[in-house]
């Protein structure tokens, strides 16, 4: 470190980079947008899962921005599958490793398109056959890579290029698919949701899934500044509000039963979350009665989540929506 100029030399930086006190499966220099929630989620996942893992990665943003030919941001064995066959590829990798007697865990990475829609059939097969694979869905609620088309994960009333608001409709008409229940219905041992806004909770769940022999599934809510239309600096804020409003329930299922949830200490109004995002801007148009109705509808969905998943906290809890991201001097996070 050069004190005179108060700058850090490239050599020192590289030395530091090599000696970071955590495992980094995803290296810098990838081409994700500013404030990308998915890039952060992928790094957090590999940090908790690595280093003895192999990845099958569906087509999508994550695949594109981490591997601009001939470079790779991955510091792990990584394979690009097609959009539709990540489950099958991961199952094959797992079977091959098993045959060789190797303990390496296989991870399957896919976006919401590769999980909810296009890759769903092979995912279902993989789950049904009981492969020892951790399937991670980076849920950014639309086909961001191809130009923000609606997926079955896109929430109700959101604007995408295939669900534009106008005289006929107010954004996407249908509801966000409850993928966690569908996945859990395959009788798998562990399925959970997590959010990039709560990294300790996310890492804890990855570690939990890594310990389990058999198919496991984690859905990570990952804001997309470009597709959702918010400032990259607000990615964490937006993700946190999705949890705090009740729109994205953070829960854990074991054998189809809910065994845990992140309680919400003080539920926030959904407008706090929606107003930060351009994809919901038509809901804030003055004098449009449909907008008022849609806002009420989304609030009702959040209230329903809170009731259905019993998310309302009882007083202060160190692991609730306000306590789970508490920091302290020295950086000792709880997970």
């Amino acid at each position: 470190m050069n004190e005179d100029t108060q700058t850090v030399t490239p050599e020192t930086l590289m030395q530091l980079r090599k000696n970071q006190p955590r495992f980094e499966g995803l290296e810098s220099g990838h081409r994700a947008c500013l404030g990308c929630g998915e890039a952060l989620a992928a790094r957090l996942v590999t940090e908790a899962a690595g280093p003895d893992v192999m990845i099958a990665n569906a087509t999508g943003c994550l695949e594109i921005f981490t591997t601009p030919w001939p470079e790779s941001a991955w510091r792990l064995p990584w394979m690009h599958s097609l959009f539709e066959n990540t489950g099958a590829i991961a199952a094959g990798m797992e079977a091959a490793l098993k045959a060789q007697g190797k303990p390496t865990k296989v991870l399957a990475f896919a976006g919401d398109g590769g999980t909810f829609d296009i890759g769903f059939q092979s995912l279902s097969g993989m789950l049904e056959r009981g492969h020892n694979v951790l399937f991670v869905c980076f849920d950014n609620e639309a086909y961001m890579n191809t130009g923000i088309q609606s997926s079955s994960s896109t929430p109700h009333a959101a604007m995408t290029t295939t669900s534009p608001p106008g005289s006929a409709r107010m954004g996407k008409q249908n509801l966000k698919k409850d993928i966690l229940s569908i996945v859990a219905a395959h009788h798998i041992p562990y399925a959970a949701t997590a959010s990039v806004a709560y990294p300790s909770d996310l890492r804890k769940k990855i570690r939990r899934a890594m310990e389990i022999e058999g198919p496991t599934f984690i859905q990570i809510h990952s804001p997309c500044p470009l597709g959702w239309g918010h400032d990259g600096a607000d990615s964490i804020k937006v993700a946190r509000l999705a949890v705090q409003t009740g729109l994205f329930p953070v829960i854990e299922l074991e054998s189809r039963e809910m065994i845990g949830s992140m309680p919400i200490r003080n539920p926030k109004p959904v407008t706090d979350y929606l107003v930060l995002q351009q994809r919901f801007r038509h809901l804030f148009q003055q004098g449009d009665v449909r907008a008022i109705e849609e806002l009420a509808h989304i609030q009702a969905l959040a209230d329903h989540n809170i009731k259905h998943f019993k998310l309302r906290g009882e007083g202060m809890d160190a692991q609730d929506s306000d306590g789970a991201d508490t920091v302290c001097r020295g950086g000792m996070r709880w997970a």
Binding site: V8, L16, P21, A32, G37, A39, R333
Partner: peptide, 25 residues
């Protein structure tokens, strides 16, 4: 600096590096 690790944990680009000793700033 509270040394809370927030910047280090949340940078999507791994562009925040943690040091062992206190830096010039």
């Amino acid at each position: 600096c509270l040394r809370c690790d927030n910047c280090w944990t949340l940078c999507p680009d791994s562009a925040v590096l943690k040091t062992n000793e206190v830096t010039f700033d």
